[in-house]
């Protein structure tokens, strides 16, 4: 039992880690793109398209998204079950979420700071890399931890369709075989993981806030 719990915990970590990394890698730039296009005259159409896409992907329930993505998953990953297929699904679901959180934080950047940066002659790229991201970094860390916790929940849902991890263990042993103690252990571990992420995120974010 312990062995199975450990293995499932490892799988959950594996999925959360890689999908988290990939979501950040694509979600943050998408957030920047949303922020920049929403603020520049002449790019409002691009913003409208991106904004609508983000809304659509965020509206689809995760379990439905997984089903909709089956053909694409099959082509790209080669299989629709297991952790790697789940990472693909999780990433697709989390990118728009991360992007929206990032955009919201960018929007809190005071207009005075933007004036400052423009007056000093920053290019668009310098503005993003030297002002926009550094100035909102503590918030972005909090956003990232919120997204990771969301991913923990999603992995459990993905477990229902064969992703592995704690979610699948809880469903297979607990729900189908009425071993409620297994469900309890799985839930406890999931709560602990979430707590850990929340704690670390808050700690880092507070340390970065000057």
């Amino acid at each position: 039992m312990v062995e199975q719990l450990l293995k499932a915990t490892g799988e959950t970590f594996y999925m959360v880690f890689f999908s988290g990394f990939l979501s950040l890698l694509f979600g943050l730039p998408l957030g920047v793109l949303l922020y920049i296009t929403s603020r520049s005259e002449g790019k409002k159409k691009i913003y409208f398209v991106l904004d609508t896409l983000v809304n659509i992907f965020r509206s689809i329930p995760f379990i439905i998204l997984v089903l909709l993505l089956i053909p694409l998953t099959k082509v790209l990953i080669g299989t629709i079950i297991g952790s790697n297929a789940a990472i693909f699904n999780l990433t697709i679901a989390a990118i728009p979420f991360m992007a929206r959180l990032a955009e919201n934080s960018f929007n809190t950047l005071p207009s005075g700071i933007i004036d400052s940066a423009r007056s000093l002659g920053t290019t668009n790229w310098q503005f993003i890399s030297k002002v926009l991201i550094p100035e909102t970094l503590p918030d972005q860390i909090s956003n990232f931890s919120v997204m990771l916790i969301n991913l923990v929940t999603y992995t459990a849902i993905a477990g229902a369709v064969g992703a592995g991890g704690l979610g699948q263990l809880a469903i297979n042993y607990g729900y189908y075989r009425f071993q409620w103690d297994v469900v309890l252990y799985c839930v406890i571990i999931l709560v602990l993981i979430s707590q850990l992420i929340q704690f670390a995120g808050k700690k880092i974010s507070t340390n970065l806030r000057k």
Partner: peptide, 25 residues
Amino acid sequence: EKTVIPIRKKIGVVFQHFNLFRNKN
């Protein structure tokens, strides 16, 4: 907005509410 950058570098601006970068020392 792009071609004005070299001009802006020749003009310093000081603001009422300072507008310093909060996360830089």
